[in-house]
Structure formats: C-alpha cells, structure tokens
Amino acid sequence: MKRLLPTGWGLIRAYAILVYLFMFLPVAVVVLLSFNASQFGAFPMTGLSLRWFEALWQNEAVLRAFRTSFLLGTLTALISTTLGVLASLAMVRYQVPGRNLIAVILIAPILIPEVVLAVALLLFLQLLGIPKSFFLLLMGHVIFTLPFVILVVQARLVGIKREYEEAALSLGASPRQTFFAVTLPLLAPAIFAGMLFAFTISFDDITGTLFWKPGGVETVPTQIFAMLRHSISPEINALGTVMIVLTVGVPLLGAAIARRMAIKRGT
C-alpha cells in the first residue's frame, strides 16, 4: 500500500532519484575522466586510456603518500580500536556510576570542531617539546577516530548475549579462558568493524592532518590537496578513482567478511 497518493509518491520518488544523481554524478565524472586519453584533465574525452594510472604508479610523491597513509591508518586503527573496545566493554557490560557523563566524555572529540582539536593538540604537544611529527599525527588520528570506534563497537556489543560467557564460566572455564575462547571470538566482528571505521576515517582525514603533518610528509589527501593547488590534472582524477575504490571497496569487503564471520558464529 502506498503511503501517499500515487502521484505524490511518484513525485517523492522522482525527487529522491534526483538527490541520488546529485550525490553520484560528480563522483562518476571523476572516475570517467581518470580514463581520459586527452592530456588535459577535462572534457571532451578523446578516448580511453590507462596512462594516468601509469603516471600515478611512477609518481614517487604519490606512492610515498600512500605508504604514509597506510601506516598511519593501520596504527591508528590498532590503537584506537584497542582503547575503544575496552571502553565499550565497560559501558555495555557494567553498571558504571556517572555513565551519562562518561558517554559524553567518550564522544567529546567529535563534539568539538576538528579545527579546534587540531590547534589544541598541536600547541600542547609543541609546548611539551614534541614537534610536528608522525607521532603527533598518530596521536591526533587516534583521538578523533576513538569516538567513532566506540559508537560502532557499542552498537554491536549490545547484540552479544552475556549468557554464552556465563555458560562457559559455569562449566568451569576460568575468566581468562572464557575471555579468549568465548568473548573474544564473539567480539571479533565488532573489533573488525571498529578497525575498519578507524582506518577509513584516518585515511580520509585532511582537516587535522594539515595542522599536524611535518613539512615534507604527505598523506594521500594532503598530497591531492597540494596537487590541486597547481591545477586539476587527469592524474588527480586517477588518484581519486583509486581512493574511491579503496575507501568504498575496503568497507564493503569488510562488511561482507564481518557478516560471514557473524553467520559462522550463529549470532
């Protein structure tokens, strides 16, 4: 049954399709232009070619940026998810006094504009004698991905029944054995989702990164930003296409793996 008059519903559907187009068209154009054979990064398309991907592959600065982003994203994901999973366990499994306040504190890094967070962290660490460095970048990325990890992990933790652990304990397993044999495997999809989320956010960040990065170090977004200052070249579109494939493909793949893991465990 339709909620509105058929014509009204038809209008809403047409409108929604336009919104979808608005969201996807510019991105589609990036992908399209990255295969453009013309030497200028623009229309008209003169033919299909992979030359810009080749140019990308030979661009040492871009490759270095990728390595930096991967390392940064991976370390951020590991640290942030460790902190986030522990905190989420406490929030979901225990009666914590003052839990509303703690909940607000835990998501505070996203309630504060990232620019402000970036300035505060930069100036504070400089005061401590820690210069702009990879370490500063890592600390920054950990702190602002943490709330996202906590929100995602908490949402998944709520669905895991405590009875499984209680059963293990009542059957004589030690708390340690229970944690490693029962809790951890059940947590795996949540941990995985948290890491993925942290990695993607870290990989995509530019607002804080531009404040924290030392001179000469570029992540993929800051590299794109630096390239944009010159002009928009087909190489940027090619880099954009790679980024799209990575940032969309990786989470989708991750979601598929997480689902498979969840199905296997029967949760």
């Binding site: 510019p26 232009l33 993929v220 940032t247």
Partner: peptide, 18 residues
Amino acid sequence: LMLPFWISYIIRTMSWIN
C-alpha cells in the same frame, strides 16, 4: 545513499571542478 559518505571528502569536493 551512504556510499558517498565513504568516498574521500577531498575527492568529492574537488569533483565539482570537473
């Protein structure tokens, strides 16, 4: 509709230049 959410912010922003 959430997919663009995952697509790099800087790529989506610069895509309008195209």
